[in-house]
Design a protein around this nucleic acid. Structure first.
Lengths: 149, 149
DNA sequence: ACCAAGTATATGAGAGTTCAAGTAAACTGC
DNA sequence: GCAGTTTACTTGAACTCTCATATACTTGGT
């Protein structure tokens, strides 16, 4: 009944698990060490920094930063304590909240970005050929098309 | 100074983050729901099940299951509470511990495996062509060769 | 206007992870 | 043969994440 993985698939799968974990660990370690935040927080700050008025509804932000609503809510609470983000009541829909990136938050992101990009290069792009980057992009698109609702 | 990502790299990177997170979330949800364990625990059980006598030194196990020593130590403590793993003092090196997969642990793994493999197929292999699987394998090998150790 | 159902977010508890110490045993050189 | 270092593993605290639940507002019928 069960369609087990054949030898090639096994190898690819384990290699995938190893490689992706190595990358995520490298990212998290670098960001934690040099910027005092986990990668998930970094993604939140990035998403906010790219939004008009550096602000976004919580649910929209959760989608952009690939976070669950609950995770985002907790994370923004922490970011708020640090003064990097501020929450405002949404005027048009009083259920809603808008997260706003503060200047301090933007500065923290700007300070963190170069080291982070360097780490992204070191752990992924520097080890791949341009063709492999294209291959990877297509592979990831295929996965997203299936798993993203 | 900073070598920022160009548009293609940006796209590939964000697609990579999205796709890998989707896969990990799918894995974790399925295992948690159907087998009551996170994916990291599953990897520990798999590693043990493949070892001679279904047992391994803690540090060796950490390496095989791609876990930090600390994480493994906590995880094995939990698995021990469930009766899935047992710890024995290592006779040759009295600093060491040997983790042993119990019959209950093996049974839990055997029960979890089919659903897990199904999820792995659904989220990765079913959406890729055989050539993409080969590409992915090579990409991951390249990453591992650089980041491992 | 009212009430049921749906939406947006928060919150608390429980579980897992990390980091920094801590313990204990094994090497290493003199 | 014993100080000093390294190795193997554990522990506790702080933090993050998940899941279930709660709260507050909105919307759609009637």
């Amino acid at each position: 009944m069960t369609r087990w993985l054949d030898a090639d698939e096994q190898h690819a799968w384990r290699s995938f698990l190893a490689a992706t974990q190595l990358i995520y660990e490298a990212l998290d370690r670098q960001l934690q060490r040099d910027a005092g935040m986990p990668h998930t927080y970094y993604m939140i700050l990035v998403a906010l920094s790219e939004a008009p008025a550096r602000s976004m509804r919580m649910s929209e932000l959760a989608a952009r930063a690939q976070s669950s609503q609950s995770r985002l809510s907790h994370a923004v609470a922490r970011l708020e304590e640090r003064g990097w983000v501020r929450r405002e009541r949404c005027p048009s829909d009083r259920r809603g909240n808008v997260a706003v990136l503060t200047d301090e938050g933007f500065a923290a992101l700007a300070a963190a970005a170069p080291g982070h990009v360097e780490e992204v290069r070191r752990s992924l792009f520097d080890v791949l050929t341009p063709e492999q980057v294209r291959d990877l992009d297509e592979i990831c698109s295929a996965v997203r098309n299936t798993l993203e609702r």
